[in-house]
Simulated scan of single mutants.
Amino acid sequence: MTNTAFDQIFRDSNGEIVIAQPPNLPLIVTIAASVLKLLFTTGNIYTGLDLIAFGSLFTWAWEELFQGVNYFRRALGFCVLVAAIASKI
């Protein structure tokens, strides 16, 4: 079997096409903190939730960048990491 560019980009080690996966803990924390930021719009609670949301999104992106199952997931981690940092600059 030849390994095409499509296979290298979108398939994992088992040969399955992987584009999306169930969310892992850092992504769940990011979503929860972001939703809570909608309820607490000012003050120290908002600042803390913003820090938690950013930190967990950074962690998720870092994990995808270095441990992603295929090149697509690694590129996704890189793009999210760059976007998260750029949003704070």
Rank of each mutant, 00 (worst) to 15 (best):
I52W: 00
G43A: 10
T41L: 12
N24A: 11
L36R: 01
L57A: 14
V29E: 10
G55I: 07
L39S: 13
G48K: 01
L36Y: 03
N44F: 10
T30Q: 08
A32E: 03
K37T: 14
A32H: 07
L49V: 13
V35E: 07
A33M: 10
I52S: 09
A32I: 13
F58E: 08
L57T: 04
K37Y: 06
T30A: 11
G48R: 00
L51D: 03
L38C: 07
L25A: 15
K37E: 03
A53I: 00
G55N: 10
S56K: 05
T47E: 11
L49C: 03
V29C: 12
S56G: 09
G55Y: 00
L49F: 05
I28P: 07
A53W: 06
L36V: 04
N44G: 12
I45E: 05
L25M: 14
G55M: 08
A32P: 04
A53T: 00
S34F: 02
L39H: 11
L27D: 11
I52K: 03
V29M: 13
G48H: 05
P26G: 04
I52P: 01
T41S: 15
I45Y: 08
T42A: 09
F54N: 01
L38H: 08
G48S: 01
S56W: 07
N24K: 11
V35R: 11
S56C: 03
G43Y: 11
G43S: 00
L57C: 13
L51I: 15
V29P: 02
L57F: 06
Y46C: 00
S34K: 03
V35C: 14
L39E: 10
P23Q: 06
S56I: 05
L25K: 10
A53L: 03
P26E: 04
L36N: 06
L49P: 04
I52R: 03
V29T: 05
D50T: 14
Y46L: 04
P23I: 13
T41N: 10
V35S: 01
L39M: 06
P23M: 14
S56H: 02
I45H: 04
L27I: 01
L39G: 04
L25I: 10
L51Y: 08
V29G: 00
A32R: 05
G43I: 07
L49N: 11
F40S: 07
L38K: 11
K37R: 15
I28N: 07
